[in-house]
Structure formats: C-alpha cells, structure tokens
C-alpha cells in the first residue's frame, strides 16, 4: 500500500526538486498546500506557470525579464557609457538598492569554476565583447563576488577587456559597514588596506 495518494506523492516528489527541500519539508509543504484555500494553492500554481512562460533572458544583458530588451537596457535615464558585470541576475538588485548607479548591466550567468566544469565558454563573455563593439561604452565595472571564483573571473575579464581601450574597474572589497576591525581576517584587512582612498 502506498504511503500517500498518487497526486500527493507526485506533489511531494516535485517539491523535493527545489533547492534545500528534503523529504520531510516536502511533505510538510505538500500538506500545507492541501489544507490551504483552493484559491491560494491555485494562485501559487498560476504564479509559477506565468513566471516560467513569460520570464526569459534579456537578449542584450542576459538579465531575467518579461520584456525584451529588459527595462535596464531600454531605460531612458540610464547611463549607456558604463556596464556593470555581475555573476547572476539576483546580483542586480543590491546594486540598484544603492540608488547611486544608473548604468547598464551584463549578467555572466556564473563565474569561472573549474570544479563545476564552468570555463569561459560557459559564461556570457562573447555577448559582452559584442556590446563593446559600438564604442559607446567607456567603463566596465566588474562586480563579481569577492570569492576565489569571482576574483579569477574578474582577472580573466580584465585581461580580455583592457586591450579594447575600455576602462576596467573592480568593486571595492574589505571591511563590511557595521562590523569591527578586531574580527577581520588578514585577507579581508589586506583588501581593505589596498582599497583605501583619500579623505
């Protein structure tokens, strides 16, 4: 005799495919959805379907969008002389939250990671080089994560981009705002010292 009715088992199996969801959590979520209002459960299903059917990569910057090109690429108030290169589309939001940057973006789709089999060919580097051919871009800000993979990607990109005559900059790394120097490790402190600026 099966543990659950066939549709419930199928729901649990599908939920288990989500990151961080194991058997127990999948069961809990499945039974929550079964107990919830019909409208609430179907609204979730509709939202997933609508997102999957309408959201795709921007043909210019590879951001996730429901209109192509995306709003960043077509926005009239955006500075078209600067492109900020990020690993994932989710990295755009923290930069936008600063309200200090109004340039364009380019989403690489990851970072160089030999252990995961991700090399330059697997990243959206060719499309970035294509965007520079117009000559309108003056600065590329590399905002990959300050990890070993992100640093390797940044260095690889700078070697590719500098010969093209474009200014290549890297976001600063170091002590997070609100933390204390006492707890900083030597690599973080070194980065902070290297990136110091005149007051």
């Amino acid at each position: 005799m099966p543990d659950f009715a066939a549709p419930v088992s199928r729901l649990i199996e599908e939920l288990k495919h989500l990151p961080g969801i194991g058997q127990k959590t999948a069961q809990r979520l499945a039974f929550y959805l079964l107990r919830a209002d019909r409208e609430q459960a179907l609204a979730l299903a509709d939202a997933i379907r609508a997102a999957k059917e309408t959201v795709h990569q921007c043909s210019i910057c590879n951001n996730l969008t429901d209109v192509d090109p995306c709003l960043y690429c077509t926005g009239s108030g955006r500075n078209r002389r600067t492109i900020c290169v990020v690993e994932e589309a989710t990295n755009i939001l923290p930069i936008e939250k600063t309200r200090q940057y109004n340039g364009l973006y380019h989403v690489l789709g990851g970072a160089l990671s030999p252990l995961q089999g991700i090399g330059p060919e697997q990243l959206q580097i060719k499309s970035l080089l294509e965007r520079l051919k117009t000559g309108a871009v003056e600065e590329i800000i590399i905002a990959t994560n300050p990890t070993a993979e992100g640093e390797a990607t940044a260095m690889y990109l700078s070697k590719l981009l500098k010969p093209l005559g474009v200014r290549v900059t890297r976001i600063a790394t170091g002590i997070p705002v609100g933390s204390e120097l006492e707890y900083a490790d030597e690599v973080t402190m070194l980065k902070a010292m290297e990136g110091r600026h005149e007051l």
Binding site: P114, E149, E151, A154, Y156
Partner: peptide, 13 residues
C-alpha cells in the same frame, strides 16, 4: 594566487 586563470584551474584540480 587563484586570481590567475591557470592557477585557478590547477588549484581546482
């Protein structure tokens, strides 16, 4: 050292 692509691949290996 891992900022170099070659070294990054070697460390990964």
């Amino acid at each position: 050292a891992q900022r170099s692509y070659n070294a990054n691949v070697a460390f990964g290996l």
